[in-house]
Design a protein around this nucleic acid. Structure first.
Lengths: 232, 232
DNA sequence: TAGATTGTTAATCGATTAACAATC
DNA sequence: TAGATTGTTAATCGATTAACAATC
């Protein structure tokens, strides 16, 4: 009884006073990766794991894992390790997964379609309510069960449905106009796939995806490895 | 004449001795972003820029810009600033852009199609030579001018064309098999969009894209902003 | 109890910022 | 020359690692 209380404490030790202000941004950046690995472990039926074993799987130091997990409450147990299910739930909660946000996807091109088809949203508790495009050929159709509306209706739709997340897969040139519409309609976050950094005012948070940067990094890694082996 | 030599020095000061080992990884991570902004400035016709002005545009400190750019050779000019064209070229070179790598895309689903259609590859000097899929309905067709072959032919194709980059947009389950095939065929880098971390041996470098992590981060940012405003 | 493993402190390391002398 | 702006050093800050006492 006592030990179960310690594994699933009703209150985290730190949550009383200084709240999430105590979680350094370096840790926040690592949380999705922890979540991914812990979720896989959960799926495989594991119940508990030690920082030492997790460190091997994830290729980081055990010290870092303990330090990280301790930032938002000590819920490991000495001599036992971490309860995977509880830990995963805790990280989910911290990340705002399963808040049940509603989303729209603007742009029904290949990328928009890819995002319409993926199970990624559902797994993170995000509901895709509609697609938007300006192409009359797709407006009115359904893509993977999601209705396509004309972008002219975007503002009203977002306002009426209190949409929280707007996914932007429109061409660079249209990005700002659409982003502004989303913002005005009260959207709280924009997931931006246009090839530019959207700078919005403080009412909206933006997460920019730069696939080009990633491709460049890959090129760098290849070149670097090549340079190193040539040196020998 | 003298000043031009200083702006375009034939040898960078550091490149003689300790090479890229001197460029910290934190700087490397920032290079694609510098490249993006400098490229935009170049397109807009600007010739030179100071660290102070660039810092305003990019929202980082001028100190960091000077420190970063100095890691791989001092090519600013006191009292003048940086030559945008030269700087962009230098960063491109360092990143391995325009090495003219050949690539294949494995998986001709929505994401594969999106990657087949984008101009992102060309801009970074990467040539897409072929698409691969197991679906007989698409094998033999052309998508945005790129031929689709059966995945059975992947190994031979990569070997014959000395493919440098393999782009993975196959389902999670197929990812490892395909990655192994690419590796065996001599591919040097894998751009992995499957929802899992590919751990390959040292002969191949991997750049993993985790869109799910990014979506989670967005959810976190929304939640965090909410929590903060509720506190007041 | 004894063994295992965390939570936590202290030491190290690296990255960022501030400041200013060097120099175009 | 004088003004501007870099390159570079030194100071600060934050993140990572190592070590071990606390504790299950």
């Amino acid at each position: 009884m006592e030990s179960i209380d310690k594994i699933n404490p009703v209150f985290d030790r730190r949550s009383q006073d200084n709240k999430e202000s105590s979680v350094p941004s370096a840790v926040i950046k690592r949380l999705p990766r922890y979540h991914r690995y812990l979720n896989d472990l959960l799926d495989s039926g594991r119940l508990r794991i030690s920082s030492a074993e997790l460190s091997k799987i994830m290729n980081v130091t055990a010290s870092q894992i303990r330090q990280d997990l301790n930032c938002f409450g000590g819920f490991g147990q000495q001599g036992y390790g971490y309860n995977i299910k509880y830990l995963t739930a805790k990280i989910s909660e911290l990340l705002g997964v399963s808040e049940g946000y509603d989303a729209v996807i603007v742009g029904a091109g290949n990328l928009g379609r890819a995002l319409a088809s993926t199970r990624m949203f559902g797994r993170r508790g995000v509901n895709r309510l509609a697609l938007f495009d300006i192409d009359e050929k797709v407006v009115g159709t359904e893509i993977y069960g999601i209705k396509v509306y004309h972008t002219d209706e975007l503002f009203e739709f977002c306002q009426r449905h209190k949409i929280a997340i707007g996914v932007l897969t429109v061409p660079k040139e249209a990005a700002y106009t659409v982003a502004k519409t989303l913002q005005d309609a009260g959207v709280r976050g924009i997931w931006n796939f246009a090839n530019m950094e959207l700078k919005m005012d403080d009412s909206v948070v933006v997460e920019n995806i730069h696939l080009g940067d990633s491709l460049m990094t890959l090129c760098y890694k290849i070149k670097e490895k090549n340079d190193l082996s040539e040196e020998e």
